[in-house]
Nucleic acid binder design. Structure first.
Lengths: 193, 193
DNA sequence: CTCCTATTTGAGTGTTGACTCTAATTTGAA
DNA sequence: TTCAAATTAGAGTCAACACTCAAATAGGAG
């Protein structure tokens, strides 16, 4: 358990949580462009002054949400050299997209709207993507020892990008059956050769 | 050949083209948020008054660019019941992404930033996506007559979404080898069973 | 109770956005 | 050459944005 915070700071931390929650919801609902200070503050039940008492600027709040979203994608991120199977990784991602639709939506929204301009956010995404690909590639190698390194990396890269693609589609079209298509991609990657 | 336009309208149409070109470039470079009237007008060498002489509002210009981008994706869109192979379709898409990077970038940028809020744009995207899936599914059925309809549609949907996913990644990461991954997805879809 | 500091208030600032309007200018057509 | 309509110019409006700040208010520590 984390060591407890002095009472004096409790109120501010609760406000902070409410602000981050509001930010996450707004990004998921209406993308970066709909996420204004005014909207965040209204939803969090706070005035602009309080926001700027806790965050340096709007981007700080957004980056925090992004970091949380990114971290939430990885199952068990502490064990980097774990022995997850590819199916474990994909199922964890499916669970993330289904259970934490807000975060998933935010992840995709920012990957595009923010990733193309803002250097900080973009860098974070590329780095995270590479880590994720490496992890998927390791799982593939474990299951297909015959495959050479480059080929497993290429397949992992295709799989991860494709998962992002169907996530994007799932975000746009509520009728889209995300889990089925995600599992189909998994099957494709494993079945070959 | 289209019938020629009265001389009196020539100047306006040229300006219109310049505005649309500027809009397309800006969307590709900096997404919807960076595409302001001021930026469009500066790049097109025009003042706001001229813009509003030719377009009702900003969204009209953007929707026009989107429609062009969408139409540019489909090879030979006149022949709906054509006999393209799946490889033809994928190669056409690869060519589109490589040759018309601006449009492809705009397509993805708008799919997310615009597709989630604006009703008009969103509808256009969903409709176009469905048409594209149907076309891919028909090609799959032609090549794998054994496959039942639902399965070919599901595979087409996976393939199209996955193509969007790697396009998104290609837009974010300039080092990404888009054609290779696109062809890998094609291979996956065809090889199975 | 009395400080002291963290927090909240909410009006206010400067900037930038989309969009308007009138007057000037161009340019086919007659 | 003259006219009328299409086009451009460019200053100006209004709203919304991110962000600030002096002052008021809590509420835990001593």
């Amino acid at each position: 358990m984390a060591y407890s915070v002095p009472m004096r700071y409790r109120a501010g931390l609760e406000t902070r949580d409410r602000i981050l929650g509001a930010t996450r919801q707004l990004i998921a609902e209406s993308g970066l462009e709909g996420t204004t200070i005014k909207a965040i503050c209204e939803r969090a039940g706070v005035l602009p002054g309080s926001f700027y008492n806790l965050f340096e600027n709007k981007e700080q709040a957004i980056i925090t949400v992004v970091r949380e979203a990114i971290e939430a994608i990885d199952p068990d991120p502490e064990h980097v050299g774990s022995h997850d199977t590819l199916a474990d990784l994909v199922e964890a991602y499916i669970r993330f997209v289904t259970d934490e639709a807000d975060l998933a939506s935010a992840y995709i929204a920012i990957a595009v709207s923010g990733g193309r301009s803002k250097g900080a956010i973009r860098g974070r995404f590329i780095r995270h993507h590479e880590m994720r690909v490496e992890r998927f590639a390791a799982a593939i190698r474990r299951q297909h020892p015959g495959l050479d390194g480059a080929e497993s990396t290429r397949r992992a890269e295709t799989l991860v990008s494709a998962l992002n693609g169907i996530t994007l589609h799932g975000v746009l079209d509520p009728n889209f059956d995300f889990p089925t298509h995600a599992r189909a991609l998994l099957g494709d990657t494993l079945t070959l050769h």
